[in-house]
């Protein structure tokens, strides 16, 4: 079977298109590359949607945590503590079994016990909590002078927030937020190992890498392929977030713009 044929059969296997049976023996390098790459689409799906939606919630949570009113502050603090203080792995398990029992209450909750919706919700809430903490930290470290200058210009309330505070907060938070995004993408590999079933063997990159390692009992091929894909993905994330970083700092002269360096720090 040619590699092109394999590509046709398995390129979208993770979403259920193409050949139904996974390869069972005599695995070729091409099959491994194609299937693991096909699984990577799930990681991208989870990562992109969770980061995009989590970002919005994170903004509200950060403002809530910074709020003077206890009614806004306490819930935000507890939410952030709950999701940052416990392992994502356990959150997945708990959520899965919670969704399972919700399923018996009403069929409305049926989609939640499958990975595409249920795991996505957990990832969304999780990244919102982590990002909120980053944004909150940035919000607290906005230079006093910026606020004073805004006051001097007669800006206040919503205008001051929109034109001064929020952009500065973004600028300060962006490097750490990039880091969080990278680790969220890494965390998406946990989904199919934590209760959520890979229905009809539609799984993510790690699911297929593990499948090959199980079948061939040789971890030295599938896992490096997975690593290769993830390093590539990480580089893409850095490129995209770097673009945004440049845009955020567009008012600065070229030489003074802070560069986004590839310095991942584990924060999960």
């Amino acid at each position: 079977m040619s590699c092109y044929q394999t590509l046709q059969d398995y390129a979208f296997r993770a979403f259920g298109y193409g050949e139904r049976m996974l390869p069972r023996s005599d695995f070729t390098l091409c099959e491994q590359f194609t299937l693991i790459g096909s699984g990577l689409l799930w990681n991208i799906y989870f990562g992109v949607i969770a980061v995009a939606t989590g970002f919005v919630l994170a903004n509200f949570l950060a403002l809530g945590k910074n709020s003077k009113s206890a009614w806004a502050r306490k819930p935000a603090e507890w939410f952030i503590f709950l999701f940052r203080g416990s392992p994502l792995f356990i959150q997945f398990f708990f959520a899965y079994f919670l969704f399972l029992s919700l399923k018996s209450v009403s069929s409305f909750f049926n989609p939640l016990s499958s990975a595409w919706a249920g795991a996505l919700i957990v990832l969304f809430l999780n990244t919102a909590a982590y990002s909120a903490e980053i944004l909150y930290g940035a919000l607290r470290s906005i230079p006093k002078g910026d606020i004073e200058a805004a006051d001097a210009y007669g800006l206040s309330g919503w205008t001051r927030f929109r034109r001064i505070e929020w952009p500065t907060m973004m600028r300060l938070a962006w490097p750490a937020y990039t880091n969080e995004a990278i680790f969220l993408f890494h965390a998406t590999t946990l989904v199919f190992f934590s209760g959520f079933p890979a229905w009809q063997q539609k799984g993510d990159a790690l699911y297929y890498a593990n499948y090959f390692a199980d079948k061939t009992f040789n971890p030295f091929v599938p896992y490096p392929i997975l690593a290769f894909y993830f390093i590539l993905l990480t580089l893409v994330i850095i490129a995209v977030f770097g673009r945004v970083n440049t845009w955020l700092n567009r008012h600065l002269p070229q030489s003074k713009r802070p560069k986004l360096k590839f310095k991942p720090n584990l924060i999960r």
Partner: peptide, 12 residues
């Protein structure tokens, strides 16, 4: 080690 998901390393 930092560029790749830790769980992949565990399994590997």
């Amino acid at each position: 080690v930092r560029g790749v998901p830790d769980i992949a390393f565990f399994l590997f």
